[in-house]
Structures are given as structure tokens and as C-alpha cells.
Design a protein around this nucleic acid. Sequence first.
DNA 1: TTCTCGTGTCATAGT
DNA 2: AAACTATGACACGAG
Length: 796
Amino acid sequence: MLYLKKYFTEGLIQFTILLSLIGVRVDVDTYLSNQLPPLREIILGPSSAYTQTQFHNLRNTLDGYGIHPKSVDLDQFFTTRRLLNEVRQLDRLSVPSSELNTWLVHRDSETVVSAGGQSSPGITLDNGAGLEDINNIDATPAMRGGGGAPESTYDLNAADSSLGAVAPEGNQEQGSGGGNDDLTKEDIDLIDILWRQDIDLGAGREVFSYSNRQKDTEEEKPNPQDSKDVNDEQESWRNGINLQGSQPVDGETGESIPEQLPVLGSQTSLSLQECLRLLEATFPFGEEAEFPVPVGNQEVSISNEEVPSTSQGLTLAPQMPTAEPQLDLEQQWQDIMAIMELQAMDVNNSASNSGNASNDTAEPTAAGTFGLSENPTPINQDVSLHQASLPSCSQDFPQIFRPQLDSVSVTPRTSMLRLSSGNSTNINSTFGATNLTGVFLPPINSSSNNVTSTPNLPDPFTTLLEESMLDEISLLDLAMEEGFSQAQASQLEEELDSDSGLSLDSSRSPASPSSSETSCSSAASSSSTSANFSEEGAVGYSTDSEAAAVETEEGAVGGYQPEYSKLCRMSFQDLSQFNGLPQLDGISHNHTYNVPLSSSFPEHPDLLLSAGKKTSRDKKLQASQDLLDKHASRDERRARAMKIPFSNEKIVNLPVEEFNELLAKHHLSEAQLALIRDIRRRGKNKMAAQNCRKRKLETIINLEQGVQDLRRDKARLLKEKMEFIRSIRQLKQKMQSLCQEVFSQLRDEEGRPFPPSEYCLQYGADGSVLIAPRSGAAATQQQSRKPEKKQKDKKK
DNA sequence: TTCTCGTGTCATAGT
DNA sequence: AAACTATGACACGAG
């Protein structure tokens, strides 16, 4: 397994590097986070919850001092640290992602600049450090935080100017021109291909050069204002904005697409194409005339002429646009949303601040990536990608992005509206219509001016489908509400869990953590205190970390007073009876043995307490002693009874070597040894059981979360489907009206009109339009009329 | 009294 | 083989 993992991981990394080198953006997270647990485990290893942690080593190497080495909270500790780091990074709008960034680098030995910015979680290969100068800070967080930010900083401008040293900006100036000779023809071809792709997308080569131009300008004019700009950039991306990296990404090449290119152009085109395809599939019945099969140039002519602003997106090339970019963006958008959800819960203000900061820069921002650059308000968690890049909808955003945690049930609906408006914008811009209400309202027969003979089919299928969709969506809204309540529940559960008394602080006595190092429990031989003690061996817990210190003290038995060790073992219910004891004030709800209370208290209180201080407190403790003994575990009582000279905790938690040494040090009877081994076995099993139960609980919670996520996905997909259906209907209506218009103007040689009831339009692949008879009966009649071929202009 | 829940323990399988 | 971990099953006490 280990070999497999190594082999597989290395192979994957190499493959990813290759892909990245050729400009294909590789998002490892997508693969890791998808439903491929085995793959994820192979690469990342088993989740910590199922990992058998080497506690003893961890304790020595990590700063988890406060945690008992066997504590089930160790997981929580690491989780806490991870979450803390994430929280710290929230103001940078960073999306943790495992991405591989590679550059084709021709390293100039004199131009190595020390790495700027922070280390990305992604794997930066080799020269990556040398490539990043301070300006590149923009790029690095962009890869992490921009969601759809460019992973590959393949810079066409750099490629253009230096043809090869496509290192990001920093070295560009110095290194330019240095690597031309090293470029192979394939490299140049590759660069050219990528460039042509961008040209195809409507982006000239120069539009990619903004950052470079800016940096060049800055480097040419290094005045304080410029440095201030640099600082502004850094500041702004710290506030959740990345300037360069937030630009839309070409899903194919991973390049930045300038802002004027709508991110969702491809989405738009996809939508239309999807609509047309769906329409084709949905309405095959006898409506070929009214609804043409979209082929080839026809659509190009439509889109190019109708929507110049989105011409890039609507340029329906003969090949079908792949859904990859959209899905990718969608995925990343959801990632952003997930983070925004967190931010909305806790740091709404900071989110809005970062939004404001985005206004300070005329650059595309992180929000600008989603077409929200105008709007400084925090992003709503339920924002859909569809309308995200439609600035025309910006008037909706104040409402949209108002944090609506209190009205989640409303959110899906508003989201749907936004979605609709986004699509309607596309449709309207395409067809020049302005009736937005048609999108939301049941389809009004917009083609009221149609020729009477034109069959305006009621299309029961669509109606039924849509009604069912509406029902389902309303149900799903409920489901989403339910999901939210589950989220709340799980959150509450987490909070409760974190407050369950397993916290580190509660395990630490404010009195003296170090004093617990004196908690040698070797006082078994001391019978100086009570009859109670004489019948039970003194057993106190000491943490594992105390072992070394304890070693030196063992055997040095002072006047042992078992009260503390007993106190350490009692449950929180019992502790509540001793609120008067200062040592116990900070302790509550600790009914686990994983964080032994004994570590909070000295097992030799006399080492801490002066003789004078002992009196009243000791009496109190003495009075409670019997009660405490009741709550000592069976093994502890047995250990006391057998006069085991060290604590149960040591018995359980010591590494086997130290444990054996400990046994060897003392001359113990067989019964004692057996008991000690039993205690160790039971203690370990006890902790294992707790771990097991905790894991079970986490698994259940995760499954609930998964169900909730799936419900959300389902609702989203249904909404999208709904929108497609609406778009299809609109297209269909438009096509009907267009056909009617055509028929109203068509005349045969004798000036007779073509009745739409008898003829239909057929569209050729070359854009030609044929008038064909509807039926065989009409066909005979049509023999007299020569098929008229007409080049139909699809303009509106 | 009964039920539920949390916990400890045992047996056993797996690592 | 020993040590350790994971987990199902059961018992027991508290609420």
C-alpha cells in the first residue's frame, strides 16, 4: 500500500506537472474532494480520525504539550490549529487548494529573487521561489484565493516578449530575451496555439499584458507612489482581492482572461447550445419547420451579430463547447461560497470591507471574478454562477448579497430570480426582446401576431414538465430549509462537543502545571494517612510527559496524601461538590480520563502546600475522601489494594519500553504484575473505545453533512434545469414568431403565400433555408411549386 | 419501573 | 510474536 501510494502519488504529480506545463489547468482538489475516498486516501493517507497516531512521538515534536498524548482530543487539537489557520487566512479570501504550479523557466543566475509572499499550499516546483518577486504576491494568492484564479501563470505577454522565459513578472525584465534560443519549436508552437486560443476568445495578446505593463511601469518609475500602488495591491489582496489572479480563467489554458471578456461567455453559449439541443431533443414532433435543428454557421451568425458584448461566449464554434470550464468555475465558485458562508456567519463586516477595498482598485477583483466588482457587499452564499458575470444585474446585488442567514428559505427563491434574470438577459439580448416578465411568468403566447394558420401548439409536455419542476423545487426549498437546520444542528453539536469539557484548559490546573510533575504516585508504601488509604494502594495519574521527571522521584515517598489523586479521578459531578476547593474551580465537565485531572493537581500536595496551609484544606479533603473513593475506578481501587507503586495513568500511557523499565524497577509480585497488565490493557481499550465512539459520531455527522450537500446540489441542478426549460420555451416561441414572419413574407412565383399549415422551413447545414411541404399530401401540391430556396437572415 | 444514554469492559480481528 | 488498535457486544449506573 505504501509503495502504491508513493508510486501513484509521484506519477500523478508528474502527470499534473506535465499538464500544467502545457497549460492545462490541473486542480488536484477537484479530484481529491470528489467521491473518491480511496484515491484521496492513497494520496493523502487515511484521515486523521482513522490514523493511529504515534502519540509519543507527536508529543515530542509538536507543540501539543497541553494535550494528553492519548487523548482523543489530539485530533481536535490539530483540527483546531488547522481551523485557526484558515480563520487567519480568511481576510485573504484564500481557498485552500492543492494545485500544481509550474513554469517554463529559464533561470538567469543573476536574477534570482528571493521568494516573496507566502508559500502556497500548492506545490511550487524548483525555481518557483526564484520566480516570485514582490509583485508576484498578486499571483500567488490568486492561485489560492481567486477561486477560478489562474493556476498556471503562463503569461502570454511574457511569452510574447521573450518567447520562452515565461516566468512570472519578476524576472521578466531582466530575463527577457535570454531564453529565446532555448525554445524548441514545440514550445513556440504551443505558445502560439495558446495565443490563438485567446484570440479566438476575443482577447488580443495585448490584453493579457496588463500586469506586466503595470509592473513595467512601476519598474520604470520607481517612485513612492508606485511603491504605494504595490502596497495597495498587496493590501487589497489581503482584503480578499486579488488583482491579477482574480481574473477569469480560461478553463482550457488556465490563463487569465481580461475582464472585458465575460467569464461566463462560455456559460452563456453553453446555455444556449444546451437549450437548443434540449429543444431539439424535446420537441421533435412535427415542429421541424418552426424549430430548426441548430447547425453550424447559423448559430454563429445569430450570436455574433446579436450579442457583440458576449460574442466571445456566444461564438458557437462548430465544436461543442466543453462543459469543463463551467464546471470548473462552478466548483470553485462553490468553494468560494463555502468560505463565504463561514465569513458570512462570523465576519460579515470584514467581508464587506474587503468588498469596499475592491472598489479602490479599478482592477478586477476577487468579487470581480464573478462579475461583482461593482458591488462591495459580501457575497451571498447562494449566488449562482449564472448571473455572476452579468454586470447588468448589479442592481440586484445589494439585495442579493445582503447576508441572509436569517432568511434562508427566501434565498433559493431570490437566487432563482437572479438566475432567471441572468438568463433572460442573455435571451433578451439575443433576440432583442425586453420582456423579462416572460421569464418568470407562465409563457404568455408572445407570438400573438402569429398567422392564424400557424399551429401554436400548447406543448403539454413542457407544461407538465415545468409544473413538476416547480413542485420539486418547492419541495427542495423545504429540503434546503431542512438542510440548514441540520447544519445548524451539526454546528451546535460541534459547539457542544468543543464545550464538552475536553478542552485543554480544563485539564490544566491554574495552580501549577509543572507541579504536576511531582505527581509521582509511588506513595503506596506510605500508610501514614488513613485507614482508607491503607486498604487501597495509592494510585494517581500523571501525564505521560511527566514520566521523565517522575522517574527520578520514584521511591522518594513523602507524606502521601491520597486526596488529590482521588480528586483527580472523580467525575465532574463529584467535582461539583467541591467547588470550594480552589484547585477545582477551573474544572468542570471533565468526565474523561483522557485528560487526567491528576495532571492538574499535585499528587504530593505537601510539596506545594506549606505545613501551615494544610490544615483546613486537608480537613475538607479528608472529609470528602470517602466520597472520592467511591468514584475511583475499579482498577484504581484494585491498584491501591494491591499497592501498585505507580499511577494507573502511567501504567496505561507509558510507552511499552518505559513501561517495562518501570516494571523492572520495582519488585512486584505476580498478582501485581497481572493487575498492572490488566490495568494497561483495560485502559488502552477504554481509550480505544472512546476513540471508536467519537469516530462513529463524526462519521454520522459527516454523512449527514454529505446528505445535506447532495440535497443542495440536487436543488441547484433542478433550478438550472428549470432555467434551461424556460430558455428553451422562449427560444421556441421566438422561432415560431420568426417562422411566421418568414411565411408572411414568402410568396411563390405566382404571388401566392405559403400557408404555414402546409409548409415548413428546413435549415441546411450551410445556413440555407428550404421551404418544404409539411405532409405528403402537401408534397404533391408542392410539386407544382418549385422549392424555394432563400437565404434567411437571422437578424432578429 | 422502564427506557435511554454514556461509559467501561471483554472478546476478537486486524495492524 | 508482541504490542497495539478497532469495534461489536454486553453490563452497569445515572437521569
